[in-house]
Simulated assay, not measured.
Amino acid sequence: MSTAQSSSKRIPNFADHALIGESAKLPINDATAVISISPLILPAPDRMMDMHLRVSAPATGNNLPIILLSHGQGPSNNLSSLNGYSPIANFWAAHGFAVIQPTHLGSRTLCISPEDHPEAPWFLRSRVIDCKLILDRLDEIETLFPQIQGRLDHSRIAVVGHSGGGHTAGRLLGARGNDPTHPTYEDLSDARIKAGILLASPGDGRGGEGLGPAALNTDLKYHSHAEMKTPTLVVIGDSDGFPFLTSRGAEYHADGYYFSQGPKSLLKVKDGKHGLGGVSGFDTAEATDDESPERLAMVQRMTWAYLRSVLYPEDLAWSEACAALDQLPGLGKVENKE
């Protein structure tokens, strides 16, 4: 008798990680196979180097909404690039989105120093310009990835950023500096972007009050969400005390919700820290104290639901997800404001 025949039982083909726990109770559509290309090299003669992208999408389907995903400035050697964030990028692609991931010049994979570029190492403005360049050249990106050509919906675009990438996303959504005499006051919002998500993002700078030692020496001290009017979901870990950015604790990361205008939602991840369960990568150095398939699955499903409903107002995914989460207080909670 073969080993397979002697097995005590068969189990269903897996759809999710076996350890996602209560997050399995949050509604989600069926996953499909994903196709991805990396690196897709977008010529950029006015940039320090050409832009290297990863593009992921469902293997089938048309009129795919687009997520522009901006990585953080974390300490891992590869995650701050197109090689990171597979836990959320692959999930969103499997559930109906096309996801574009640039490698910003601040990536640790490049290690560009202040001697080489005045914006190094954070490249706060350059990151935003990267995203605008991608939006300007979506047709070219489709040509370079023929399997998605003609399948993207250029009218339904969202931006998502984690940590330092949250600052990038915030600027595209309308956040800007609070001092009219400072260059950060420049309006870099983009009307092509209809919605956004800030994941453990920098909060308001307040002139440097409460900023960590690294952030204090950057333009983050001028950052303000007062003009961020685009619909946005702000996601924070309620145990995020990331001292690299702030001494104010988790509430610092909620500033994008409390101090902005327009329709906003806030998702507080129970016991979550800066990695929000591991959004940047599976089993990674950046989430050694925050690795949780259950928390990660909750963030995956809730962010998917938010973007579905904000890009397709007739879609009830967000209200249904919020209702389900209300019954699961051990995972987190949502606040909404108009």
Rank of each mutant, 00 (worst) to 15 (best):
N90M: 11
K9C: 08
Q73D: 14
S23P: 02
D219H: 05
Y306E: 08
F145N: 03
G332A: 09
E314T: 06
K337Q: 13
P213S: 15
G205E: 06
I112G: 06
Q300H: 13
A323E: 12
D271G: 12
R151T: 08
A191N: 10
G161F: 08
R308K: 15
D289L: 14
G166K: 09
P121C: 07
G272Y: 10
A93W: 06
L133H: 03
G330E: 13
H182D: 15
V99P: 00
G166Y: 07
G262N: 01
G177K: 01
A31F: 04
S80M: 15
P118R: 11
R206Q: 12
R206P: 01
K273V: 10
R47I: 05
I20Q: 11
H104F: 15
R206N: 13
M49E: 14
I157Y: 02
D136M: 00
D139L: 10
Q149L: 14
S292P: 11
A305L: 07
N217W: 01
I28S: 13
S38N: 14
H223R: 02
Q5Y: 04
R125Y: 10
P43Q: 05
S265F: 00
R108Y: 06
L325F: 05
L211G: 03
D204T: 12
A158G: 12
R127T: 12
D219F: 09
V269M: 13
L53Q: 03
A120Q: 09
K25T: 08
V128E: 06
S247D: 14
Y85P: 02
V279R: 04
S189C: 05
I66Y: 02
P45S: 12
Y185I: 03
F282C: 08
G262I: 10
A158V: 07
V299Y: 01
I148A: 09
L152Q: 07
I197L: 01
L68H: 03
N77D: 15
K221F: 04
S126C: 12
M51W: 06
L40Y: 01
H167K: 01
P183N: 09
L124C: 00
G241P: 05
P27R: 06
P114V: 09
K333C: 13
K132V: 04
A89D: 01
F145C: 11
D204F: 08
G161H: 06
T184L: 11
D315I: 06
V235Q: 09
D179T: 07
G256W: 04
I35T: 07
G72I: 10
K270V: 12
A195K: 02
I197S: 03
G21Q: 09
L296F: 12
T32Y: 03
P114M: 11
G330S: 15
H225Y: 15
R108M: 10
L64P: 02
L245K: 02
E251N: 14
N217V: 07
S224V: 07
V235E: 05
F244S: 11
D30C: 03
I134Y: 07
V160S: 04
M298N: 05
D326A: 08
F145L: 10
D139V: 11
T143Y: 00
A33E: 13
N29Y: 02
P202I: 01
H167E: 09
G272R: 11
L267N: 09
T181K: 11
D130H: 04
T230W: 00
R248E: 15
N29G: 13
G207Q: 05
L26G: 00
A94K: 02
G150T: 14
Y258D: 14
G332Q: 04
